[in-house]
């Protein structure tokens, strides 16, 4: 049996219903000591369900989950004792002050009165919340609430910290401040699993990234290796005034070094409707001009966008879709 911080083997979760929904479709994942592993995927990819399974709150339909060698299904109490969890929603206790949120959390984990007091004081200082210690959760900003949620999650000194979309809805400054906090916690020896649909977050924060889509992990590696192996070259979106027909496709496919990935999603990032093709290419050098010349006889070109190599282009290369769809 492995004593890794976290090990998932063939984990499946089907929610009953008509039709049943398979949220997690067979995941294998190992998280090693002291790393920050990112679970990167679009909304609905199965990230929250996976985290729910690790926290023992979602029972897997199939497969095995062990946390430091302890079976999460058979012995949830012990597993919960080693986990720190930050849920996607603000779940702070609204009836308790910020300090009390930490203090009583420590008591739930069996810390004595003195130890819980000291720990709560220390954490409020460390997470820069000391001046609001007597405020109630509804009275503080979103960034502060999220810092408090992380402080609370680590208050009992868990060996594995789970963060479910920790920066969703935060402003850019709060987001960067949170990355710094998480990096500090890792430096203290904590292992971290963080889910996110922000590729910048995965890139900046994580030692390794697991790309997840439709309940499956497509690939796990360091951000650099992912970009090197899967994102080599660029993604080119060719915007047309009408959906691409067979003639356009054939013409584009004939351009050397270009591969047609998919049709453009009908709705773009900014919510406008669009049509055209998504291509991958080794580089833009010599390609763009040829491409324009190839398309022009068959269709009206509206625009042409080039995505440099990022985790997002890795995701596009792997799935043919982008993260925000």
């Amino acid at each position: 049996m492995s004593d890794l911080p976290l090990s998932l083997r063939h984990v499946v979760k089907r929610f009953p219903g008509t039709p049943p929904v398979t949220a997690v479709a067979g995941i294998d994942l190992d998280v090693t000591h002291g790393e920050i592993l990112g679970l990167l995927g679009p909304n609905g990819a199965g990230k929250s369900t996976t985290i729910g399974i690790i926290t023992t709150r979602v029972r897997p339909t199939e497969g095995a989950v062990t946390v430091f060698g302890v079976d999460a299904v058979a012995d949830p109490a012990t597993v919960k004792g080693t986990l720190g969890v930050v849920q996607q929603a603000n779940t702070l206790d609204r009836r308790l002050t910020l300090w009390e949120n930490l203090y009583y959390h420590c008591r739930y984990f069996g810390l004595g009165r003195g130890a819980a007091r000291r720990r709560s004081d220390e954490l409020l200082d460390r997470f820069r919340l000391a001046d609001r210690r007597d405020a109630l959760p509804p009275q503080i900003s979103g960034g502060m609430a999220q810092r408090l949620q992380i402080a609370r999650a680590v208050a009992h000194d868990p060996a594995l910290l789970l963060l479910d979309e920790p920066t969703a809805g935060l402003d850019p400054q709060s987001r960067i401040a949170l990355w710094e906090l998480v990096t500090e916690l890792r430096a203290d020896g904590m292992t971290v699993l963080v889910s996110t649909h922000y590729m910048e977050e995965a890139d900046a924060l994580c030692d390794r990234v697991a790309i997840i889509d439709h309940g499956r992990i497509l690939v796990v590696d360091t951000p650099d290796a992912l970009k090197r192996d899967h994102g080599d070259g660029v993604v080119i979106d060719v915007g047309l005034t009408a959906p691409a027909d067979a003639a356009v496709r054939a013409a584009v496919a004939d351009v050397p070094g270009v591969r047609v990935v998919d049709d453009l999603p009908a709705t773009g990032h900014d919510g406008t409707t669009q049509a055209g093709l998504r291509l991958s290419a080794a580089s833009t050098e010599g390609t763009v001009g040829t491409l324009v010349a190839a398309v022009t006889p068959h269709a009206t070109l509206r625009d042409l966008r080039v995505h440099e190599t990022t985790l997002e282009s890795v995701f596009i290369a792997l799935t043919g879709r982008d993260l925000r769809e």
């Binding site: 009836r95 308790l96 008591r107 984990f109 868990p158």
Partner: peptide, 30 residues
């Protein structure tokens, strides 16, 4: 943080006590 002992499972009674303390705090406030 690394100088603190690894977390252990405290057992049911201390947790029950902690949960009751929280409820008592809220009751005292109300």
């Amino acid at each position: 943080m690394s100088d603190r002992p690894a977390p252990t499972t405290p057992g049911v009674l201390p947790v029950l006590h902690g949960l009751a303390l929280r409820d008592l705090r809220v009751l005292r406030r109300d």
